[in-house]
Nucleic acid binder design. Sequence first.
RNA 1: CGGGGCGUGGCGCAGUCUGGUAGCGCACAGCGUUUGGGACGCUGGGGUCGUGGGUUCAAAUCCCUCCGCCCCGACCA
Length: 480
Amino acid sequence: MPKDGITPRAHDYSQWYLDIVQQADLADYAEVVKGCIVFKPTGYAIWEAIQRGLDERIKATGHVNAYFPLLIPKSFLMKEAEHVEGFAPEVAEVTRASGEELAEPYVIRPTSETIIGYFYSKWVRSYRDLPLLINQWANVMRWEMRTRPFLRTAEFLWQEGHTVHASEEDAERETLMILHDVYADFVEKDMAVPVIKGLKSEKEKFPGALRSYCIEAMMQDGRALQAGTSHNLGQNFARAFDITYTDQNNTIQLAWTTSWGVSTRLIGALIMSHSDDEGLVVPPRLAPTQVVVVPIYKNDTERSAVLAAIQQITADWKGRLRFKIDDRDNLTPGFKFNEWELKGVPIRLEVGPKDVANRSVAIARRDQPGREGKVIAPQAGLTERLTALLDAIQQTLYDRALAFRNARTADVTTYDDLKQQVERGFARCYWAGSTEDEKRIQDETRATIRCIPLEQPQQSGRCVYTGKETTRQVIFARAY
RNA sequence: CGGGGCGUGGCGCAGUCUGGUAGCGCACAGCGUUUGGGACGCUGGGGUCGUGGGUUCAAAUCCCUCCGCCCCGACCA
């Protein structure tokens, strides 16, 4: 039974998403600041968990964190032709300060390639300085015409890695390593969201990049969501900002750079991958609270007996489980069950007088909402049982999402089939068309090439649009 | 930028057509009874009706202006 006030997914997926965001208390519209949201504590806690998982991996792969200015001289943005063109429509400018017109306007960063490029040109002298591997956690601003909480907001939080390398091969290796070992690994293992790793088409690549790689996830409505991107910038930004180094032969060489980022959009991906009509579902590895304990009692005597039992049960949880004891006295247990279900806590424990007497507990798992997912278990060995259950829930969520994606992915060989397939999910097909062809398809179907998967077939086939023989397959889908 | 919708206690809405000085549900506060899947009773507090102007004896309501927000589309992480 859906919660009051949550629009069922089948009825209106978009409204369902907005309802979840509001009712699970993840975010508030900033109202007075157009296109922005407030990350409420519950939503921000998820972001912190995402940050933790990514930051560990970013550091484990040799990067360090730094921080660059929010404001970028406008002229910097103009230095890379494609980059200007790509971002010009959505940058906000600062033209006045202390009551005066500024000599040169600043833009609020939509991304930091340019200002970081400026500093890198000063920092990089010798091949011994390379590779330079820096990441920053920051907010950026893109003045979008249409916004949706987490998925697209005027200001958003992200990490952006910016690296410099001596050769194209090194830059390419970095770009792909980030894609595999940082982004795909994190999103699949911690977020339980399966992704397709691929290359962006010319039309979809980052403005100024040589090549853009991405991970694409499928949401429950069959639409694609780009969950992360990693760009081999070639020498474009090195040329624009004069990032050069002296090599072993004392010759000056132009460097190769990369950049890569994931944003608070991942929170949107998380919501749209796992949640249901009962509310949010957070995978255990990311859940700020993994287990909530609800005491049940009729009077003060029972209350103190139950709370004492809970203290005993949870005694060895610290450091092993992230948990919360919901001892609020003014709410009924039923209300709490629904509230925690709405907020997506993976496991709920109920402890009442019967459990005190029987040395048992009731365990309910969020991936099986309602009474159905509830079992009675002995208190003995509970911690191990819960740890295992969290792993099982994590796996279930991933398996479920993968099964869904597979069911909604189809190989298509004709344009008519493609048109139909993008209504429900991913259309995989051979592709030898041009950027113009891709645009035409977008106009006609609203679908775009989400990526050219890194995993390609051995045999060739006919292009779904032009009929030309090709070995390249792509994924078409409607995207967020 | 185009299309649509909405601005009335914290939230969701009614009241607007047909002008008469604001109401309902939830939430909130107090007290009591409750508590294994969204408890109940009683009492109570809280609103410049988005803004500015106009019409009128009288405006949430009629007329004009402006503003904001949300949704759908084009653009994008």
